[in-house]
Design a protein around this nucleic acid. Sequence first.
DNA 1: CTGTTAGCGCCTTCAG
DNA 2: CTGAAGGCGCTAACAG
Lengths: 364, 364
Amino acid sequence: MALKGPNGEKTRKRTRSRASSAASIRDVARVAGVSTASVSRCINNSGTLSDGTRERVLAAIDELNYTPNSLARDFRRGRTFMLLVVLPSVGDPFFTDVMRGVHAEAGRRGYGIVISDTQHNSLSANEVETLLISRQADGIILFGTASPFATEILSSRRRRAIPIVIGCEAIAPELKRYPSVQIDNVLAARQATEHLIDLGHRRIAFVAGVGGSMLTADRERGYRAALEAAGKRVSAATVVAGDLSVAGAAAAAKRLLAVDPRPTAIFCANDEMAIGAASAIAEQGLRIPEDMSLVGFDDTRYAAVMQPPLTTIRQPAERIGMRSVQRICKLIEEPSALRDNPEPEIVAHELIVRASTGPVPNGR
Amino acid sequence: MALKGPNGEKTRKRTRSRASSAASIRDVARVAGVSTASVSRCINNSGTLSDGTRERVLAAIDELNYTPNSLARDFRRGRTFMLLVVLPSVGDPFFTDVMRGVHAEAGRRGYGIVISDTQHNSLSANEVETLLISRQADGIILFGTASPFATEILSSRRRRAIPIVIGCEAIAPELKRYPSVQIDNVLAARQATEHLIDLGHRRIAFVAGVGGSMLTADRERGYRAALEAAGKRVSAATVVAGDLSVAGAAAAAKRLLAVDPRPTAIFCANDEMAIGAASAIAEQGLRIPEDMSLVGFDDTRYAAVMQPPLTTIRQPAERIGMRSVQRICKLIEEPSALRDNPEPEIVAHELIVRASTGPVPNGR
DNA sequence: CTGTTAGCGCCTTCAG
DNA sequence: CTGAAGGCGCTAACAG
């Protein structure tokens, strides 16, 4: 810690003396022979400025190689132009696609993105607060991570209203006041399950997310609804917990394949888990779809190239990301919008039938 | 745009009047009956402070629910505690793993991460400058994106030395002065190719990245080196450009399969492309490895669950991310280190032989 | 159209 | 051990 010798001292000299630090707005003003206010007006295109002044300022900026210090700027304006995005796993290709949309739209609007990956853990309200306050993000987007701390965050918010948008997730009642962007997960999962029922399957298993993961809770709900609607024709629900990961689902599927009587179809709450399940199925020497039908959820870029290609639900991932950013920006830029009580925004999904699903095996 | 009515006016009131804005250090000082200096000392554990004072400050902080304004803080300190990470594709599962390491280590050290995804495009020095200067990141990590603008960024750097670390990438001579963390890509690719040669393959194709992508240039070099070393025993190199993506490689592999005489093995410069290639191979009714051996690079989480499991090169992705952050932090926290001329840090790779490679088909 | 002025919230000398 | 004071770089009134 304690630097010995003259070297350490040297570096601790007062700020003023740092050699040739970056040019400041004052330097530009001096060189251009104008006031700092004019420089400011020039770089922000605000107020009015004569062409002559503008040119001299621009020349000075060029000469000094001046770039505004955005720390000072953000401080002054009270804005960071940073968006905090909280999601369960940056590794999931679905979220990757969502983030592509987020990055594109944010970049277009001059915002940076800070990501907080909860690694599928639930996030405490406190952590979010800290992230938000200490990082001073202008707004926060919660993708599939909102509900665990919904009540907390609401009650602890004696502070100023913070722009929050929720994406991809079942919206708990107490979160209804926040804008959200999502597909109808219940309906989508129901349709996927009905697709299997229509193919004649009666023993359809479901690989869910982590215990009580809100991200997939609605999907399980849709699955159960389909089974119930089919009534006596299908057997009771068989649900196991994957952990939304490839490896977790491989293990979960293995257990499923040991059940007697064995299911004839497996519906996974996301594509990642379907990949894991496919591997477990192959390992047991079973074929897809002849011995086992398989359905995923998300239509990630891997779904179409799996062997066989995966039947799944397509979510407009990039669009969800893009819209979330648009909505958070609106909240940020028009604070009055914070008092609106917006409708959840439901975007369209689509059941993509590929070769991983087929008729139920004979006599089963 | 133009808000009509009194509403618009209201929101434009001077900053002073914003209702109950967050507590400032002055408020805390007033409530605690001390000076702002003491509050500062308390929250930063700097200087000296009597227990009594500390307690009163802490009480005031608690009462006011005070959180330091990090905009002001960063401004004052000239630090953002943000790291800029530039990479070719956040979607690639390899980089996802790298980023897991980055996030973990950065979080541990109190840094936030801003990601710039170049989408495999090359990044101009100007863009990097802008990103760096305007965002005022404390440092920048370039993963597989450095070389295209190496010369540029070096020549345009009349500014202060900026902490830069380069990862996963062939280091061009003019970048040698920057710390870097990477595997030995040439050697790894050579070993993968030799593995195929040892299995008896003589027509081995290579699916490279985008035209001249530095990220995979070394891998192509290793591939060619292995072929040359094997001399007459193997035919000339067959290299096609994928674009590091699943879809791009599927198309590239398709072309490869139409070549006469057809290769008996395909080595892809990353796993993503191997996934695409596998799909193209299956589509042609060919089996892996009986008709076609396939090798990837990265050992992403999908490699082991592919059908058949993929032979590939394992890179310590998380470790690369972690080490990169550690090194950038060192540069940031000990500016004198900027003047060091560090050795590139080579981390260990490993050839993982799985079932996607086998002996060359009879009579070919 | 342009300059002057007054801070934003915090940290850090410098005195006491 | 503590308080007073100055200023980081920029922007936004307010005068001229």
